[in-house]
Amino acid sequence: MNILIINGTPKTGWEEYETRLDEAVGIISGEHDISHFRVRDMDINFCTGCFGCWTKTPGKCIYRDGMDEILSKYPSSDMLIFITPLITGFLSALTKKTMDRMIPIVLPYIKLFDGECHHPQRYENNPSLGLILYGGNSMDEAVGITFDTLDRLSLNFHANRTFKKTVGPEEIKEVLIYEISNH
């Protein structure tokens, strides 16, 4: 299976989680093709809201940066997993800026899907969506809101399946293996 991981963890404060994640990715890579991107180590600009990715260079942002590398994995991915700690009670800015830059995967046109407006997909394949939150308790309001955001995003990104989990460092490997095998 092809798995695309977008990791929006900031540089400091989550070292134990990150070490455990690397171990888990190392193990799973034996069986699956994993592309793991740490946004903090990449040059990824904020979306400027110009819609050039729809109207000037269809399917591609008009600016060249690390997003090309991430998006080139998208059409062949079976799963897209966002990994982030909660920062001020929500997805990190690093994670959110990457999500914004993913709008070239849909078309500009608007259609009703179950009575609500969304954009049709550009690619035939749409990976399932996952969200792994470092720390956090699934009973927390912040976690609930962040999970609900992923559910909303799955409508816009036409993902047929989603999973959302909070993890402690020692659970990362187990959760990844479980979710991948249940895909």
Binding site: K96, R101, M102, T149
Partner: peptide, 8 residues
Amino acid sequence: YTDAMPGI
């Protein structure tokens, strides 16, 4: 933006 606030 993508169902939340923009990254910025």
